[in-house]
Amino acid sequence: MGASTRPKLAVFKFSSCDGCQLALLSLEDELLELAGAVEIAYFLEARSQTLPPPYDVALVEGSITTAEDSKRIQEIRQQAKLLVTIGACATAGGIQALRNWKDVDEFTRAVYATPAYIETLKQSTPISAHVPVDFELNGCPVNKAQLLEVLTALLLGRAPHLPAHSVCVECKRRGTVCVAVAQGIACLGPLTHAGCGAICPAFNRGCFGCFGPMESPNADALLAHLEESGHAAAELVRLTRGFTGFAEAFRTASEKWEKRP
């Protein structure tokens, strides 16, 4: 049997919606082949059988929001040769990181009928704030073709081929007329990591940054331009404070525009 020689893949979930691990099950054409190429050793959403560590590749979905989870991620790091974060929660803290700008103690008291039953940390943080991460895959959710590329590359021992440019390049490639230029729609495309295929502008709306900031984005220039074109500072704060709002470039931008008169 080849079972013992196949690389062991594990999938772990933290605070999240399950959408990124679902992307694995959405590889309808490749799923059975993938399950033959790797040993799916730990994937609670998909199978009851679990195999003990160590794992060759651990895919981690979700952000850290409880004390217990901050311990669990340490254990997982020790069990995995390669740790890959999948999606905006694991990579940037996710939409639940909106709490990071609030007083969570007050929040919990206000929200829960019995606050004592609830344990939660003050912040929702990405996996990289807790353990070293070997590769981060962006997206809310991740693009399943990119997920397959990362898995293939890791299995072959090469670097994944993923674009580093902005969503703007993807818009040009698919021939979408710029929604910002033509219609004055506030769009984060110039700052946002490619990978989604520029679907929002293709659907006649602005990018809201769910793949996170690209490398070296010029947020100041874009936001100043958007403000001059008539978008209120409060709108720009909301726009940058979204699904990847706790990623550094977006966080800095939203905090800066929040202070504007």
């Binding site: 933290f14 605070s15 929001t65 409880t66 989870d69 939409i95 639940q96 909106l98 709490r99 609030k102 929040f107 206000a110 929200v111 609830i118 939660t120 929702s124 809201f208 709108e235 909301r238 979204g242």
Partner: peptide, 20 residues
């Protein structure tokens, strides 16, 4: 499953952001 406080952080968001 850790609580994520959706109903709390929706406060202050624009209604057009709600479905996303």
């Amino acid at each position: 499953e850790p609580p994520r406080f959706f109903e709390a952080f929706l406060r202050g968001r624009h209604l057009q952001e709600v479905p996303d």
